[in-house]
């Protein structure tokens, strides 16, 4: 029966996947190769070669000497953790109220919050900058993190998840005398862990990779997040691709570890609409 499974279609499928793998992951692998190439390597060789002849860790030490990349990564981590926690709190609170509670004015609030999804970030960039300056938070990590703590998209995701929990679950608890907060925390929250994971992952990746807003808020180099710091790396070493590659590799390691660790939840969460069965 095995022979039956190898059809021309399967061959084409694997071939296409391999080509796409080379196009999508190849550039990253090439940076790893570049990052380990030493002075004895001709990185501009035609045709190019992959395995370093003069293998070295120098490029990484040089990056650490030239920019405080670990400090920038720490700043990014602080911003990211606050962003993830903040979004989980606001999205579950608002998602529960809008997805499960009945009260006058609900449609108005929903329209108000989801209407904001139509306002793109650039439209309010200038005024947000003025607001943050007015609060004397420019040049601080708090200023970077505050405007992003309540994503309307996350509320929408959580609202959908809460709304799809069967009503019997909550009714049983209500009969047992559980108040709305107890039902929220003990009955409903455990049911939406899948979606909460998706919100957490999206917030993490979004905050870690955010560039424009920290670029606007932060002027002081000691407060740079990793993305803003990496941009400076390019300016400083534009002549040496090895260092850019080493910097890119250093920045990629944590985010790829994070992704590979959580990818199971991520793909499961997205494909089942995020609702835990």
């Amino acid at each position: 029966m095995r022979a039956n499974r190898i059809t021309p279609g399967t061959v084409i499928r694997y071939l296409a996947c391999t080509v796409l793998f080379i196009l999508l992951v190849g550039p990253i692998i090439w940076q790893v190769s570049l990052a380990f190439k030493g002075r004895g390597d001709n990185i501009y060789a035609v045709p190019p070669y992959f395995i370093p002849k003069d293998f070295t860790w120098d490029n990484f030490t040089r990056v650490f000497h030239q920019i405080p990349i670990l400090h920038y990564a720490l700043n990014s981590l602080i911003v990211t953790v606050i962003n993830v926690v903040g979004n989980l709190v606001t999205a579950t609170l608002a998602g529960y109220a809008l997805g499960r509670l009945r009260f006058p004015g609900k449609k108005l609030v929903a329209g108000f919050i989801f209407g904001c999804m139509l306002i793109p970030g650039e439209t309010v960039l200038v005024s947000q900058f003025l607001t943050i300056r007015g609060l004397h938070l420019n040049n601080s990590l708090l200023g970077v993190v505050l405007p992003g703590l309540c994503g309307a998209m996350n509320i929408l995701l959580m609202m959908t998840a809460f709304a799809s929990i069967p009503h019997e679950l909550e009714e049983a608890a209500e009969v047992d005398g559980a108040n709305v907060w107890q039902r929220f925390i003990h009955i409903c929250l455990p049911q939406v862990r899948g979606t909460a994971m998706v919100v957490a992952i999206f917030s993490f990746v979004g905050a870690w990779n955010d560039f424009m807003w920290p670029l606007v808020v932060i002027g002081d180099e000691s407060k740079y997040t990793l993305t803003v710091g990496l941009n400076k790396l390019k300016g400083a070493f534009v002549t040496d691709p090895r260092l850019i590659a080493a910097g890119a590799v250093i920045a990629l390691v944590p985010i790829i570890i994070f992704f590979v660790a959580f990818q199971r939840y991520f793909f499961d969460g997205v494909e089942t609409g995020g609702v835990k069965e």
Binding site: C17, L20, F21, L24, V25, P27, I28, W30, Q31, L34, V205, W208, N209, F211, T227, L230, N231, L233, K234, P241, I244, A245, G247, A248, A251, L252, I255, I256, F258, F259, V260, Q263, F267
Partner: peptide, 24 residues
């Protein structure tokens, strides 16, 4: 495996992607 691999550039983010492709 391919599914995960194809998603990697998306998690890399556009700043790191920009650095990588400046080199490329």
């Amino acid at each position: 495996f391919f599914r995960t691999a194809f998603y990697v550039p998306a998690v890399a983010g556009s700043v790191i992607s920009g650095l990588i492709w400046t080199n490329m």
